[in-house]
Structure formats: structure tokens, C-alpha cells
Write a protein that binds this DNA or RNA. Structure first.
Ligand SMILES: [Mn+2]
Ligand SMILES: [Mn+2]
Ligand SMILES: [Mn+2]
Ligand SMILES: [Mn+2]
Lengths: 223, 223
DNA sequence: ATATTTATTTAGATTAGTCTAAATTTTATT
DNA sequence: AATAAAATTTAGACTAATCTAAATAAATAT
């Protein structure tokens, strides 16, 4: 059995590795988890002893097969619970993450299997992120961000890659949600901001940071 | 914030006090929780400092107003989750307790409020026990056990007062479930066992222990 | 190639929750 | 009432997860 805390380390290692490709540094883990590097070092030794990770002093860390599977299980649970909260319990997409952080650690094979069935085997969560299947496969279709497009492109919002409340509240206040229609009116080279027309109505300015976290699908055939 | 462990102490104090009426002894808590009395003493001091309990050395412990409310909140969550598992996720009544022990500690006002609505505000859980309302009231109608009745009485099973897997598995193997019809054929004074006719079919012998934990409703007007 | 800076690990301390063994208080029995 | 037994608390120790400060290794800059 792993503690909640050990599970959170494994999940964080997975997330950082996913974003960077390579091995995960002690410092990056410490920063992500809001704790000190010395604490991380202790835990890495422990997770290595339990063979969830491959760890060489000073060389960073990678998940073992076992660790990777555990990470995917946790992410599966997290995203299924988020789906449950949005679809069945009237939560907004900006309210689910915190609760899912707790629910993802509940231990019960049957629970998660039945939840999956109850939700009719969803493949993406409320933020547009893929949900690993029971056999831990993820339908990773290529994901495009608003940032990848240019003037005159027409797009539909299908997800976000940052599910912090801060970001999702910002989208709410911009009136951007899943399904919103976006036409790019201008790409400003100066600060990489985007001027867009939203649902053929309001004109809105989007910062680089927002544009890098909005997952969209093109409605025309430009790249 | 209380830890899971602190919450479990409070719940155990509530349960023991509910059964016994009076103040709760260190030893009874230690036994219920499967830990040593010395450990309990430490925790009682801590819960007293946080004013969840009234505690005098050597005199046992009672819940404060604050502690009682917290206990009821936890029990509310436990029983709502059990209801969810049975009604929505195809769990059997003998499978839910262990998972509910985990879920009862999830912190989210909105979650439990919406779960209550989603289940249409149930008043009893799958074992026939009352679910505290959002304002922590419990519709405590008097409960009758099979043990309270006598020869020729006809009863319907509406709950159990022991939700251990051991007991519920035993009921399953006796083919007794919620709604089962029971006619008392014989009350044996020797060992307080009961011979019953089940659903007008099989004849079954029930031990005193089982009879004391089966909650029933009379189908005729005898007491 | 050295020196400096940055990243990481080691050492020692702290808190929560638990234990065993010993001391003390309360309860029960002569 | 005195003694024995039981219940409870105290004392001291352990593990998990964290911290700060110091030491060491790796990376970078001169
Ligand atoms: Mn999330
Ligand atoms: Mn988490
Ligand atoms: Mn239960
Ligand atoms: Mn519990």
C-alpha cells in the first residue's frame, strides 16, 4: 500500500516527465509539490527501494514500469471523478480539480470499474484531457493549442491543459467555455497575444499564456 | 482541519456513547479501534485541546457540541456514500462499508450537498440506518429487532445494526435480505435461537446474535 | 583549467501517530 | 479498611514526513 503522499510524488514525477520528456530533477519535483529538495531526496530513496522509480544520485529520476502504471491508475481515477462531478453532481469545470485530488486516492477496484460504467466509459475529462482505459491505455490524439494557429483561422475550444481554478475562473470571466467558437482576428508579434472574435459576437484579447493553454480544434483546413 | 485519524476517533466515541449512553472509557475506545490504551490517552488530550471532547483524567470522555456535530457529519457522509454505491454503482450491501470508510473523510461541502440531491435525499442507508439531514437531524424512529418478537409474529426485514462484511455475508448465505418476509415458528429458550419460515418457503434457524442485529417491521399487530 | 554558482544530498531536528513498559488511580474483593 | 485487580496515564522510544543548515557534486563562467 502506498500513502496518499507517495501517490502524489508518483503522479508529480509522471506529470513533469510528460511535459519535459527526460528524467525528472529533484528541484523540479520540490517546486511542483511545494516542499524542500531535501525532503524529495528522502522520498526518492524510499520510492526507489519500493521499485516505483529508477533513481541514481544526482542523475534525476524516471518512473519504472510499476511506477508508470500506478501513475496512470491515479490519473484515470482523477479524471473519472472529475467527469462524475461535472456530469452527475452539477460541478463546474473550475470546481472539480480540488475534490478529485482527494478522490483519486480512494482504494477500490470495483469502485472505479463501476464508476467508469456509470459514466458510460468516457474517453476525455471535463478539461479535454484523455482518460486512461482500465488497461491503462490513453487515446492520445495530437492536441492543438490556440497558440499554434494564425490570423483568420476558425476554431472550437475542446479543452484546457491547465486546470487550476485561477485559469478556469479567468476563462469564465472571458466567457470562454468548452464548445466556444473562436475566429483569430489578429496575432500580435509584440507580446504574442491574440485578438479573437468569440462566438461571432464579442472581440476579446487573449494573452500568450492563455493561448498556450487553450486546446482547440480547427473548423477550416488551415494548419 | 482534522486528520482522517482524528475523525475516526470522534466517530468511534460517538458510536460507543450511542450504544452505552454514558461516557466512553479509554479501554473501550482502544478496543474498538484496535490500538493501545496509551495511544488513546494521547489523542484524547489532543481532541480535548481542540475542544471536540470533554475529558477528565480517569473519568472517560464525552463529545462536546462541536464534536457531536462533527460525528454526525461523518456518519451522514458515510451513509450517503453507502447509498450511492448500492443504488448507482451496483454494490451489494455487504460490500459498501469498507469503501464508505474511506469516502466519509472527503472534504467538500458541495460534494455532499449535491450527492444528497443526486440520491433524492434518502433518509435511511442500505442497512436500514437513519441518515442525518444537512442540518444534522436524524429521524430516529424506534427500531425493532427480530429478537424483540415471539412465536407466530410475521415480520419484514428492513435493516441491520451490524454492517460488518462477516455478518452481511452470513445473511446472504441464509438468503436473508432487505424485504425478506419472516414468520417466527419457534423461540428456543435454551439458546435464544429462532426457528423462522423465510418468504413462506425455507425453514431456517437463526442464532441469538443474528436475531439481535436484524431490524424488522411487524406485519401484524402483536408486539 | 580554475573558480564560481547551482543542484543535490547529508545531517540533525520536529511533529503526528503509534508502541511497550512502568507508574498511578480507580474499582472490586476480601 | 486493607488489599488485590483492573483501568488509565506517564515515560520513553519508533516511523513517516517534513524542515533548516551544512556538505558535496555538477554545471557554468572566467
Ligand atoms: Mn484535475
Ligand atoms: Mn492528489
Ligand atoms: Mn457502514
Ligand atoms: Mn473512517
Amino acid at each position: 500500500m502506498l500513502s496518499f503522499i507517495e501517490e502524489n510524488y508518483i503522479k508529480s514525477i509522471y506529470k513533469i516527465a510528460e511535459a519535459s520528456g527526460g528524467p525528472v530533477s529533484t528541484n523540479s519535483l520540490a517546486e511542483k509539490m511545494g516542499i524542500k529538495a531535501a525532503t524529495v531526496t528522502d522520498m526518492l530513496r524510499k520510492l526507489s527501494d519500493k521499485s516505483f522509480i529508477h533513481y541514481q544520485k544526482y542523475q534525476g529520476v524516471t518512473l519504472s514500469e510499476k511506477g508508470n502504471n500506478r501513475a496512470l491508475q491515479i490519473i484515470r481515477k482523477h479524471r473519472l471523478w472529475e467527469m462524475f462531478l461535472v456530469q452527475k453532481l452539477n460541478f463546474g469545470w473550475d470546481e472539480v480539480h480540488e475534490v478529485a485530488e482527494q478522490l483519486e486516492h480512494i482504494q477500490s477496484e470495483k469502485l472505479i470499474h463501476e464508476l467508469d460504467r456509470f459514466l458510460d466509459y468516457p474517453t476525455i475529462d471535463p478539461h479535454g484531457e484523455p482518460i486512461p482505459t482500465a488497461s491503462l491505455e490513453m487515446n492520445r490524439e495530437p492536441v492543438w493549442y490556440l497558440f499554434n494557429f494564425r490570423k483568420a483561422d476558425i476554431l472550437t475550444v475542446v479543452g484546457v491543459s491547465d486546470d487550476s481554478a485561477l485559469f478556469l475562473n479567468m476563462l469564465d470571466s472571458l466567457a470562454i467555455s468548452l464548445g466556444s467558437l473562436i475566429e483569430i482576428l489578429e496575432c500580435n508579434e509584440y507580446d504574442n497575444s491574440f485578438l479573437i472574435k468569440l462566438n461571432n459576437k464579442a472581440t476579446v484579447l487573449i494573452s500568450q499564456k492563455v493561448a498556450q493553454n487553450l486546446i482547440v480544434q480547427p473548423n477550416n483546413d488551415r494548419k
